[in-house]
Amino acid sequence: MAATGEALTPQGYIQHHLTNLSVGEGFWTWHIDSLFFSVGLGVLFLWLFHSVGKKATTGVPGKLQCFVEMIVEFVDSSVKETFHGRNPVIAPLALTIFVWVFMMNFMDMVPVDWIPELAMAAGIPYMKVVPTTDLNITFSMAIGVFLLIIYYSIKVKGVSGFVKELTMQPFNHWAMIPVNFLLETVTLIAKPISLALRLFGNLYAGELIFILIALMYGANWALSTLGVTLQLGWLIFHILVITLQAFIFMMLTIVYLSMAHEDH
C-alpha cells in the first residue's frame, strides 16, 4: 500500500495512483512520467531492434534475431494482407505502433505499487507508470496517424479528389453537399478519436481494476488472499488485453491508411 504520508483512504490511494507527475501550468503542463516511460520504452524498442538489425545474419539466426524477425514478419504479413500498394512508411509505422504500444501497455503488468513506491522513496511524489493510460499519449499517436491519413489522401487523390470525397459522398448530388460534408467529416474525425479513446479506455480501466484489487490487501487475511487470486486472474486476462489493444491499434492504422489510398 502506498504510504502517502497523509491519512490513507481508499480515495486518496486511487487518486494518488492516477495523478501524473507534471510540471507547468494550464495547457503547458508536461506529464514527465508519461513522457519518460513512453520515450524510454520507445528508445528501448528502437535500440533493441536496431542492434539486432545491424548484426542480422542471413544464415542461421540467433534466438533474439528469431524473436525480432518473428515480430517483423508478423507485422509485415498483416500489412501485406490489408494494404495492397507500395508505401515505404506503412510497414515501419505499423511495427513501431505495435511494439511501442505493446511495451507501454506492458507496464501495466508491473505490480501497481512497485514503481510509485520506489519513486516515493526517491522523493518523487507522483508516478503513473503506464503511458497508455494517459490520454495525451494515445491521442498524440492517433493524431500522428490522422495526419498521415490526410497526407496520403491528398497525395493519392489530389486536393480536389480529397474534397470530392468529403462532399460528394454518400449522396452524389450538389444539394446534398452540406449533409455529405458533415457526415464525412464526422467519419474522418471519428477515426483518430476512436483509436485514441479505445486504447486509453481499455488500459485506464485495466489499471483502475488493478488498483481496486490492490485496495483489498491489508484488510484481513481472507480479503488479501482473494485479492492475490483476483490480481493473478486479472493479470493473466490482461496479457490478452494489452496484446489485443496493441494489435487493434496497429491493424486500424493500416486499415485507415489503406482506405486513404483507395480511389473511389
Binding site: W30, L35, N136, M141
Partner: peptide, 11 residues
Amino acid sequence: MNINATLLGQT
C-alpha cells in the same frame, strides 16, 4: 488526464 503539452511532446 486533461489534454496538455504532453500531447505535443509525444507527437
